[in-house]
Structures are given as C-alpha cells and as structure tokens.
Amino acid sequence: MATGFYLGIDVGSVSTNLVVIDEKGSIVKKIYLRTEGKPIASVQRGLNQLGEDFKDHEILGAGVTGSGRKLIGKVIGADLVKNEITTHGVAALQVHPGVKTVFEIGGQDSKIIIIREGTVVDFAMNTVCAAGTGSFLDQQAKRLNISLEEFGGLALGAKVPVRIAGRCSVFAESDMIHKQQMGYRLEDIVAGLCEALMRNYFNNVGKGKEILPPVLFQGGVAANKGIKAAFEKELGYEIIIPEHYEVMGAWGAALLSRKTGKKMGFRGFSLSDREIRVESFECPDCPNCCEIVTVVIDGETIPGWGGRCGKWEKGVSRATG
C-alpha cells in the first residue's frame, strides 16, 4: 500500500519549523531552523532537507501557520493557512486529549490557550510588548554572557532567586546589573530572571484566565528548565512538556491539512532549488494606493495579494496604468 504524508510548516519570527506526519498523524520527521529574517530562504532550506527523505513520496496535504503563513502559503501552494492559536491547540489535543491549558512561549509572542472538553474556549496573546516572551530571555542571557542552553540549567542550581523587576527588559537590565554589583550569585540571578518572565506571563496573557491542569507547555522556551520550574513553583503542580514541544504549531498545521485535504496543491520539494523573489509595489490604478505583494518563482509570477479590489488575487500581472 502506498503511503502518503502531510507537511506542516510554522514560519515564526525566530524559528521556522517543518514537520512531516504520516496518515495516523504521528511525526515522522521534524526540522527546527532559525528564520533569521528570511522566511522564504529558511523554508527552502527546510524543504531541501526534507526532500532527501520524502521526494519519492506523495504529499497529500500541506498546512502553514505562524506570522509568515500568508507569504509562505502562497509560495509553497499550501492547502491550508491557519493562525497559530488554532494549530497549537490542535497539536496539544493530539498529544493529550484531556488538556485544559496550553502555555506557548515563542520568540516574540506568548499565548495562553484554554481548552475545555476538547475545544478551545478562550485564549490570549501578548500585546504591544515583548515582556514575557523568548526575546526577553535572549536579551538577558546575552547581557550575562551565557548561552540560552546553559541558562535553564543554571537556574535550577539557585538557592535564593533574587527578585528582578521584569516588566520591561530595560528596567530588568538595570535591576540585574545592580544585583550583580551587590554580589549575588549568577545562579540566583538567572533564577530571578526566570521568575520575572513567569510573573510577566501571568500578568500579561494569563490575567483573568482560568488555569487548570493538565497544563501543556510548548514553544521554543519550553526547553528552558528554569522557566518550567518557575511555572511549577507558582502553580503548585507539575506541567507537561510534550516530546515535540518546539514544533507543535507546524504539527497542528499538518494535522489540520489532513482534515481539509488537497486544495491548492503543494509545489513540491524542488522549490528549494528554484529562484523565489518577492516584489512589492503600490498599485497605481486607483486612489486607494494598495500595497501589492507578488511572488515570482523562476520568472513566473503567481497571483499577488494586498489589494482591496480583488483583481490581483485573480492573477492580473501588472497595473493597467
């Protein structure tokens, strides 16, 4: 029996994740890459790696999520383009059907998803501020001159975590330097930062939400043992980190594409070898001055988007002037 696979891609601000799942929904292969501000290039790199294993298999559906979902969805010919809240919820339910709360902390955003009886009933995402997200940790780790990998382990060695004002990373820095000058141990400072992030998270996205166990903790920051410990200390019970915590969004997108089936048609792994160019311009045809984005693959333009009248989506290739 020929087997088919489904592809899921999560194009986030910090990382681009790709997963391939089988027809049962289990992950066969996953790839975690840094986006580095170039979403198309990182997706191409990912497809190239996946192509080695899967180029002879049929991809029955492709789903895209994350902040770059619209662009990448057009480029790869996705069958499904879905927001990251829904995809994270779907993946969490796949791992743990009884899950009631999902914490997701990524590079520039953090979210909380409240699930009851298998459906998402409430959610929140951080607004206007990166406090309580991975970037906060990234910044502070750089200032302390330690890698993010060491960070979590160090925090676990803390005896008395120091209190650090974490509302804003600028204030956190001055507070942290002050504590260093006072002679606090590095472990205690790092643990203090983890607690600051946890407090931010509960103040920012967790406010007013009914947090009940089982809690799943996913997203890149879940790798950080110090943060997990800070959450558990505050909640008073254990939280679960799923095996594939870092690619849950991509997994959810793949699972959803299995449900919707083929629509657009995935353009294939060979995309990684083709020249993809994005062009944007102001449409001069009417006073709305819409910003139009089009993608050119090996010289061939695929329908653009961004206009309010709809003609670019229909495949008009240039302004009528």
């Binding site: 927001n83 990251e84 929140a124 607004t127």
Partner: peptide
C-alpha cells in the same frame, strides 16, 4: 480584548480575530 497601539501590526490583529472566529 484587542489592545491597539502604534506598534500593532495588521498580522497580529488578523491572527487574533481568526483564532477567535475559529473558537
């Protein structure tokens, strides 16, 4: 609740609204 400011991007607003409508 949608808290909006000069920093807000259209993508963030769309994401929240989309997820809300799904819900």
């Amino acid at each position: 609740s949608l808290v909006l400011d000069e920093h807000s991007g259209a993508a963030g607003v769309t994401t929240r609204l989309e997820a809300f409508v799904d819900l």
